[in-house]
Design a protein around this nucleic acid. Structure first.
Lengths: 141, 141
DNA sequence: ACTAACTGTAATTTTAATAGTTACAGTAAA
DNA sequence: TTTACTGTAACTATTAAAATTACAGTTAGT
């Protein structure tokens, strides 16, 4: 899967650790080891969904608005990576019963599979991720 | 996800429809609209796992050995696409608690998620896929 | 024995997807 | 009015996926 998902989760987790002040795309980008423009693109989408606020100009940046325990990984997946589970299918070949229908059969199966994935990802919210991050950090010491 | 999975399922489904004779990589490739060499590579792996047999030389090709209801989509997924669900993560940044641990946190979460996907994909075997293909075909008429 | 039709696999080239970079307009604070 | 930001579009570079070429090995038919 796409790294947009990872970057969205990463950014939200970081913002949830710094709820009192704005974080710039540069700071987040450095934490995630990617280009600031990517962060701005992804956070721009998250802003449109109401998870964060942004502010332009000096002292501006991004800030978490909702509660870290109110946004789960499934919501983030849907926004950043919907359909990523679907296996790629070559062009349909109408001359063959298998070639003509495989794509739509697998599409149905993996649409269901994605729903199941959703049930699973719903169990994790940003607060959970933050706690897991802290846990891993302690284990490493 | 990778199209190797689709091509493996496609090939096995096709072979299950023609259990009495050898099918060449050219014929399968045409049905799937891809290059014959890709089919040979993928079927070579399936052969090593014992799902099919192959034969070189004139009149050779590939043939299904096991029963179509004995091989399920999870087995094929594991062979062709294990780990595909894992979201891509940029390099870890050890200077930041989030950057240092996000990768391993998401890896854990998505390893679990892949197991759940496994439980789901186990429900479908090649015979089921073949029936779904036939069903779609009838619907289209 | 020779040829034609296959698989098996490595090496190379092409294409597509992903990510990075540049550029610049707009905004807000000092 | 300068500096530090976001917001986006356009472009370039990198990486991953797929196609292509090439050729050795196998088998059946003649």
């Amino acid at each position: 899967m796409n790294s947009d998902f990872t970057l969205a989760v990463h950014s939200l987790t970081l913002l949830s650790l710094l709820p009192e002040r704005m974080s710039s795309s540069d700071a987040i980008a450095e934490s995630a080891s990617v280009h600031p423009v990517r962060i701005r693109k992804i956070l721009s989408i998250l802003r449109k969904h109401g998870f964060i606020q942004s502010k332009e100009g000096t002292g501006g940046g991004f800030i978490f608005t909702s509660n870290p325990n109110e946004i789960n990984l499934w919501e983030i997946y849907k926004i950043t990576s919907a359909g990523a589970l679907q296996p790629k299918c070559p062009e349909v070949n109408t001359d063959c019963i298998v070639g003509a229908n495989m794509k739509s059969v697998l599409f149905s199966v993996f649409s269901d599979a994605e729903e199941h994935l959703g049930d699973f990802l719903c169990r994790y919210n940003i607060e959970d991720v933050m706690n897991l991050v802290k846990q891993k950090q302690e284990q490493a010491l």
